[in-house]
Design a protein around this nucleic acid. Sequence first.
DNA 1: TTTCCTGTTAGTGT
DNA 2: AACACTAACAGGAA
Length: 286
Amino acid sequence: MPELPEVETIVRDLNKYLPGKIIKSFQLFNKKTINLSLAVWRRQVVGVKITKVWRRGKQIIIDLVGDKHLVIHLKMTGQLIWQGKHDLVVGGHPIVGVGEELPNKFTRAVFSLSDGGQLFFNDVRKFGYIKLVSAKELDIAFTRLGLEPLAKSFNDKKLKLALVNSPKAKIKPALLDQTKVVGIGNIYADESLWRAGILPSRTVASLKDAEWKALAKAIVGVLKSSITHRGTSFSNYRDAQGSSGSFLKKLKVYGRGGQECRKCGKILHKSKLGGRGTVWCEECQK
DNA sequence: TTTCCTGTTAGTGT
DNA sequence: AACACTAACAGGAA
């Protein structure tokens, strides 16, 4: 479930393996996964060295030598798998498991690198993409994106400032708006609001300063905690030691509609807000 | 079997 | 401006 923590986890993992390696070949199984024709794409990408992997919001950027950047968005069901000689790193969507032959029927693209390792892009629903862009195009696309909640400068005042120009918007849909704050998806929106004790249906304008403070703190806390646990998604990482993790067990409200609130024991409510399933506690959230 | 639901988000229409 | 709806699609749950 790639939201910010899942993407951050993948980025950290890939940064251990990809920089310094050269793309030897590129295979494509779904035309729409990339933004250029395959021939042009190959001409631009094959033989080029990877320098760095980073992210902005939920988007993963692989920097290449020259003015070339691969922008990957996993959307709902995207998955990146690094299959090295000794290591296997799976990040993103849970459906396709470890131990399966690759490529599989959901593999949309494959990068084969100079050390013999392969990076697989799998995506069940084909929403995700890999775009090759210049730094300038990257800048243009990213200026539309909102605050980075894990930036050192992020705080309640910045959060309020980013949202307050939509005073009548409901706070949960506003948090999901990537032009305001990046990285928060359906799971962490519900989790953050529960932590902060704020009803998802409250309007932006109705939040008091103390609530902005609680919300900013909750967002940072939830995201950081999830990163520590390597995200909510099944994210399987296997190396010499073997390690894996999941924030799933830590969730307080997401996916728990109809069950008891972990704080007060009351039954959690579930309904739709802005077209998204939303879970909250009427006792703990006001 | 069928129907409903799902992690995203750009785009369109009201 | 805010909100609803759609597109992309597969599969799990009920």
